[in-house]
Structures are given as C-alpha cells and as structure tokens.
Nucleic acid binder design. Sequence first.
DNA 1: TTGCTCCTCACGTCACGTGAGGTGGC
DNA 2: TTGCTCCTCACGTCACGTGAGGTGGC
Lengths: 184, 184
Amino acid sequence: MTSPISTDHPNTTLRVGDLARRTGKTVRAIHLYEELGLLEPASRSRGGFRQYDESAVERVRWIELLSGLGFSLQEMKSVLDHWWGADRGPEAMADLRALFQKKLGETRDAIRRHQQLELELLEGLRYLETCRTCGQQGTTHACVTCEQDHGRDDPVLVAGFKTGPATVRPSRPSLVRIDDSNPS
Amino acid sequence: MTSPISTDHPNTTLRVGDLARRTGKTVRAIHLYEELGLLEPASRSRGGFRQYDESAVERVRWIELLSGLGFSLQEMKSVLDHWWGADRGPEAMADLRALFQKKLGETRDAIRRHQQLELELLEGLRYLETCRTCGQQGTTHACVTCEQDHGRDDPVLVAGFKTGPATVRPSRPSLVRIDDSNPS
DNA sequence: TTGCTCCTCACGTCACGTGAGGTGGC
DNA sequence: TTGCTCCTCACGTCACGTGAGGTGGC
C-alpha cells in the first residue's frame, strides 16, 4: 500500500512523473510543453521539483486533442495567448468558431483518406489471397514476379513492389520486367 | 504550346521537377527518397540531371501510400530489401499478409480516433453556439470566463482554455477561477 | 543511507524545408 | 544569351528521444 508513486488524493500535488503517467505522455514531452509556454507547474518545491494540480491533467489532454486535430504546439500557444490576451469579445469567439469549423472539415477529410487506405489494404489482402496458389507451383520466386492473372490490375500497394528494387542490384536484373502500358 | 515543362509523352523521361509535379511531392522529398535507397532515376544526363521513367511515379505513390499507413521511410526500405533479397518464398508472402493485417487494424483505429475528434469538435461548436447570448450581455470578457450554465459539462476542447493562461500573467489573476470537482 | 525521481544541459532523430553557390539544357 | 531547372552541400525545424552528470525526497 505504501507505493513509491505519489498518492493521488484529490487536491494532491502531482510531480512530473505522475502527470506523465496520468496523461500517457513522457516527462520530456511535458518539459517541452513548458518550454513552449503551454503548461506551467502550480509551484516548485524547495529543491526545484515541479508541482502540478489537477488542472494540468486537463491542459495536457487539451494539448493532445488539438495535436490530433493537426495543431502545432506553436499554434496552440498562439491560440492560448490570443484568448487570454487583450480582447476576448464576440469577434474572438467568432475566430474560435471559424477555427473549429476549419478543423472539422480537415478531420472529415482525414476520415475519408483513412477509409480509402482501408480499401487499399483490403484490395492488397485479396490480391495476396490469390497468391497462395502461385506459391504452390514449385517456383522459388513467388507471386511478386509471377505472370499469373490475378483477375484485376495490381493494387498500388502491390504494384510498388513490382517496379523493381530501389538500389539497383546487378546480380538479379532479369526479374525486373514489368509492362508500363497504363500510365493512368 | 511550346511549354517550358518537359513534354509528357508516353515513355518520355521525366526530370526531377516533372516527377515532383506529377506526384505532388517536393524535389527535396524525392532527393531524400533516393538518399534512403527507396527510388533511383533510370539514368542521368551527361550533366548529371536525374532521368526518371513512369515507374518512378508509381514508386512515389507507393511511398505515399505506405507513409499514410504509418510506415517510416526506413521501414519501407527494409520491406523493399527483404522483398528483393534472397528469399521470396511463401513465408515472405505470409509476412507481407501479416503486415497488411496489422496496418488494417491500425487504420481502423485511426478512423475511430478521428470520428471521436469529429464529435469533440461538434460538441465544441454547439457549446460556442450558446456563447452568442453571453457576448450580448455587455460584458467585456465573453463566454470563456463567464459562469453561465451551458447545459452540460465543458467539452475538453473548451475546458483546456478555461484552466487559465499558460505563462502566468499576474495582471489578470481573478479571471481564473475554475472548479476541479470532477477528477474523472 | 539506499533507491528512485527529479533537475538542467545538450545532442540525436525523422521527414523534410530552405537557402547558398554553381552549372546544365532547350 | 537569357531564364529556368537542375546540381550538391549543409544547416534549420518540429516534437520529441536519449543519455550525461548531478541532486532532491520519502
């Protein structure tokens, strides 16, 4: 019961390691947020140890959220500065709404892109499924260089392999023989 | 008609700028892919200019795809090396299938995360909608510091603002007065 | 006192961005 | 010949990672 980790009573002060564990961040990341002016400890111990309260957890979660929305740490800083600066009237509110709207669009784009990637992966997996029969024909070099008809065009995921090795290996040139007949 | 851009006939050789335009990458990025062994020009001109064929476009698109799936450039290199190396038997095929399966899971996680972010943004926007009335009450500091009941708990997106400025400004301490009564 | 945590430099990494200074190609 | 593109260094950036060497705290 006497754990080496600081006890987490309500209103207990957290040390940087506690805050890191609570938020899933590293100590270094938290130091960085402080360097960039995004987060400050409530106080310091006599020895210089950072002491945080519960609001720091909320702030780090907020940073993580905005990071997921594509904000850089500098952008978060300027949002914070703008907000707590001179003017926080209705037009500042409108700025924030516009920013959220913009990020909403970008987030929806990201969802669509990832759904497209999901389809590519499923295509690639279906393609490799038909490869199993290639591998069983006793050849040493399997499906990637085979000429078997897979019933459709190569998915991008597989076509990238088939265009040959990156750094040219003179020892195996004959394996690279692909038709570039469809420049899409 | 006599454009300064290299003509793009089928089987025309592309210069690095052409490849960049075709793929939406920068010239620097393409140089980097070459440094890391992911892409080689088909040849060089007498003066040292890189000359690419159509397969380079496909390779760059493949790099972009894998990048979207969370591969580092080094990982792509090792995939490529592994593939064009000694063994490409059925077990190499199984490796690739396992990799695709893993990335499929991660991609679906990413979709879920972004859908959650979408909800957070919609929450935040709904919250700010009720703020309009706050701003109309003649106060100089609007909704962020107001005590009006918004009908629900603050969304994380808004709560992050309300925990006070990052770098402490002694000139405005009284505005920061938030209850930490729910340590979730 | 021991062991763990914390402190502050400070350099490394990843995927490029951004010039600097010079030359190729139609 | 002019203007654009290309060449190779080589340093900068972003969000941390990773020690180095030393000290605080229960």
